[in-house]
Design a binder for these strands. Structure first.
Length: 455
RNA sequence: GACCCGUUCGUCUAGCGGUCUAGGACUCCGCCCUUUCACGGCGGCAACACGGGUUCGAGUCCCGUACGGGUCGCCA
């Protein structure tokens, strides 16, 4: 019972890395890491027609981005390879011979079928409990979705096609045996298939691994998530400015519970706290808004250096130089209000803009206020008096405050025109620090341009 | 259609027979903080699918119904 923990993620390279697959990978990875085990990546590419190298790259890139590193698998190898099923034909042939020797298979129309025993197989699932099925009885009934008719069928499992290629159930079991997988953690959609796998394990005389079928993630409307749905594909998280630790955190929460009120976890905390016992039984619905919130929380927790590094590519696409000296300070202003890395440039762009673009609606709104030209005049003369070397958020703020008092104006009535005049819009980062970054000269230029706009 | 799994606020969930007039989080709303934008803090709305049992007592155990999901491929 105390065999080494070996888990695996076995994607089929026929598309993108889906959030469901990524979460399965995460749970397997977490379990292996928690128990000092090995995480194996196996590529299930027996379907030569649908499998592509491009798809494999996308999946590997996605896993790497998430930080779900594998100990054995493509590129790193291992002692139980090869890790592509397309290269394991000899192994499958050898296993087929074992079944042939025991007279457990027969040919049917060129294909090879495995004789299914007439008995109950009980899946002892770490999440779902015991589930028993008699394959001979169950397998004798089929369903034709076209005609919606129940049809009689041969319960014996096809394990090899006439063209010599092997079927999923067979290779899956053979590989799990050969790779000495101790825990099979996979989607609940495989629960009904598991008795078939159990029959195969028994035929090979091998003790099956521990199974854990995790609930599925559905769309918010309860329908099955497809590639078209928002939040379905991992590479979109990369492009949209999510942090990998946030995506891992959120995926972990969909189907697993820490059992207390904590929700934001670093990857190390997830490893420490994860357990199969705490995996939920019921399906969950994917909520993008909460995912955003989790990301915002991780954004706030990022170190200044990490934030700068992670934000850099997004700054570039936003037309802002990541090397500007003012970037660290600007990022601190942005992180409090950005939920995504991709939102950061938009928040701080006005600081670096030259010339500044004014939001017409904001200008019109401010212009409509009575006495706004006087306000701007007061602002300009007050800020001119601030010494260049004393151009800091505090002194800027007190200069405005003093001017308001001296001219019998309300501070609140000054800040809005000041904001629109210097930043171009009604909302944005904390104003005084932003003005500090723009610089005295820039602020005065902007305000005087704004002044002419008003008259 | 058969079989399998599931069902607590709109959503993610806590709850493993009495401490539940059901807790937390997201969303939404209100208030406070901020003489700017946010963050933040505080508060509010909001759930045990239904019906039978078992029990002194059921969100918690059992059965049924309804609903949802899954499987029934020479896809994985």
């Amino acid at each position: 019972m105390s065999q080494p923990v070996r888990t695996r993620f076995a994607p089929s390279p026929t598309g993108f890395l889906h959030i469901g697959g990524a979460r399965t990978a995460l749970y397997n990875w977490l379990y292996a890491r928690k128990h000092g085990g090995v995480f194996v990546l196996r590529v299930e590419d027996t379907d030569a027609v649908r499998s592509t190298g491009e798809s494999l790259d996308i999946i590997l890139d996605g896993l790497r981005w998430l930080g779900l590193d594998w100990d054995e698998g493509p590129e790193c190898g291992g002692n139980h390879g090869p890790y592509f099923q397309s290269e394991r034909g000899d192994i499958y042939d050898a296993y087929l011979q074992k079944l042939q020797a025991a007279d457990l298979v027969y040919e049917d129309d060129g294909a090879i079928r495995f004789r299914v025993p007439d008995k109950d197989f009980t899946v002892r699932d770490a999440v779902c409990g015991d589930v028993s099925v008699n394959l001979k009885v169950q397998g004798a009934r089929g369903f034709d979705p076209e005609t919606k008719q129940e049809i009689e069928k041969n319960p014996d499992l096809v394990i090899r096609r006439p063209n010599g290629s092997y079927i999923f159930h067979f290779v899956n079991v053979v590989d799990d045996i050969e790779m000495q997988i101790s825990h099979v953690i996979r989607g609940e959609d495989h629960l009904s298939n598991t008795p078939k796998h159990l029959a195969l394990f028994e035929a090979f005389g091998v003790e099956p691994p521990q199974f854990a079928h995790i609930p599925l993630n559905l769309n918010e409307d309860g329908t099955k998530m497809s590639k078209r749905d928002r939040g379905a594909l991992i590479h979109e998280y990369v492009e949209n400015g999510f942090l990998p630790e946030a995506v891992n955190n959120f995926m972990a929460l969909l189907g697993w519970s820490p059992k207390d009120d904590a929700e934001i976890f670093s990857i190390d905390e997830l490893i420490e706290r994860f357990s199969l016992e705490a995996v939920n039984k019921s399906n969950s619905k994917f909520t993008y808004k909460k995912c955003l919130w989790v990301n915002a929380e991780h954004l706030k927790a990022l170190s200044a250096a990490d934030l700068r590094e992670k934000a850099a590519p997004f700054l570039k696409t936003g037309g802002i130089s990541p090397d500007d000296d003012r970037i660290p300070a600007a990022l601190e202003l942005a992180r409090e209000r950005a939920e995504l890395l991709s939102a950061i440039p938009g928040v701080i762009a006005p600081i670096f803009a030259d010339p500044l673009e004014y939001d017409d609606e904001a200008v019109t709104k401010v212009a409509a206020k009575e006495g706004v030209t006087e306000v701007v005049d007061v602002l300009i003369s007050a800020l001119e008096k601030v010494d260049e070397t004393a151009w800091k958020a505090d002194s800027i703020k007190s200069a405005i405050h003093d001017a308001a008092e001296a001219n019998d104006m309300k501070m609140g009535a000054m800040m809005q025109p000041c904001r629109v005049g210097t930043m171009g819009s009604m909302s944005g980062p904390d104003l005084a620090p932003a003005m500090e970054l723009i610089g005295k000269e820039g602020v005065l230029e902007r305000l005087s341009e704004f002044r002419t706009k008003l008259s």
